[in-house]
């Protein structure tokens, strides 16, 4: 059945590997997630609607999506630079810097949250620069700039946890890039900038998009590190995962599942869009 939907190939093992992939995916991801959907279906439609479109919940969607988007964008820009520097240049201490990139994965999210809050709180290492009497903050009115306990703090946390996604998906792609094409472009008279924009960027774009999408998706669900730095004020700095926890605290599993389903669908749509975009760009390129 699969074979009719699949292009011919001389390579073996499609049936076996695909079968195993689907089986494992179903057992570990699809069935448990189906359980979530079933749970959210135990309340009726109007309850579902009320739970997922409450103004407070809507405010949290905006905040979560906005902050995740900004965080992922910062990561895409700086992640590209970092990956480029790590792959292409050599400088003292490079291996250590390379090693540090994984830190956000290795540190438990709660620890990251506490550490970031300690740094960005008004009495923290960086936070005090931005406080009303700090050397940066004094130029921004009587209150200075607050980072921790505002949406800015949430962006900081989400940038932190998403960084490895961009760098680590770009690195193999860059390492695997054919230098002959660059040389060819250069010998045909292209400037370095043209080579980068017309040759290098299109090659690594799929990886960059993947990294961006993964960082974004991860940020949408992030809880542990954000609750420490967010302030958690309703309508202002309350993220969606926190509202899910709040629902659980009141033993409303079904409503918690309902909100989870909504965010899950949204991130599924974003991920699918980017994966389709990549597939299309690959088609187009070849």
């Amino acid at each position: 059945m699969q074979l009719t939907l699949k292009e011919r190939s001389v390579l073996p093992g499609f049936g076996l590997t695909m079968g195993f992939t689907l089986l494992y995916l179903s057992l570990l991801v699809m069935i448990p997630l189906a359980g979530l959907f079933l749970k959210s279906a135990t309340i009726n439609w109007s309850q579902f609607w009320a739970a997922t479109t409450d103004p407070r919940v809507v405010a949290s969607y905006k905040l979560t999506f906005g902050a995740s988007l900004i965080g992922a964008t910062i990561n895409a820009v700086f992640g590209l630079i970092v990956a480029w520097v790590l792959v292409r240049y050599s400088f003292p201490g490079k291996n250590l810097v390379d090693a540090m990139v994984d830190l956000p994965f290795a540190m438990p999210t709660a620890v990251s949250g506490i550490a970031l809050t300690a740094i960005y709180a008004p009495n923290g290492w960086i936070g005090q620069w931005f406080a009303h009497d700090g050397w940066i903050g004094q130029w921004f009115g009587p209150n200075g700039i607050k980072i921790a306990y505002t949406p800015l703090g949430i962006i900081v946390a989400l940038t932190f946890i998403g960084l490895p996604f961009v760098v680590r998906t770009l690195q193999p792609a860059m390492e695997d890039m054919d230098s002959e094409i660059e040389e060819a472009a250069a010998s045909l008279g292209a400037t370095r900038r043209q080579t980068f924009l017309k040759v290098i960027l299109p090659t690594i774009l799929p990886a960059l998009l993947t990294g961006f999408a993964l960082a974004f998706a991860r940020a949408l669900g992030e809880y542990g590190s954000v609750v420490f730095i967010a302030g958690n004020m309703p309508m202002k700095t309350e993220i969606t995962p926190l509202l899910i926890v709040t629902k659980l605290e009141q033993y409303s599993y079904a409503e918690a599942a309902a909100i989870a389903v909504v965010t899950l669908m949204a991130s599924f749509a974003v991920l699918l869009f980017i994966n389709l975009l990549q597939w299309w760009s690959r088609r187009y390129a070849s």
């Binding site: 609750v227 302030g231 958690n232 926190l242």
Partner: peptide, 13 residues
């Protein structure tokens, strides 16, 4: 109130 932590000890911190 400016910060609503999720637990008592987080608030203390």
């Amino acid at each position: 109130v400016q910060v609503l932590d999720t637990g008592a000890r987080a608030s203390t911190m």
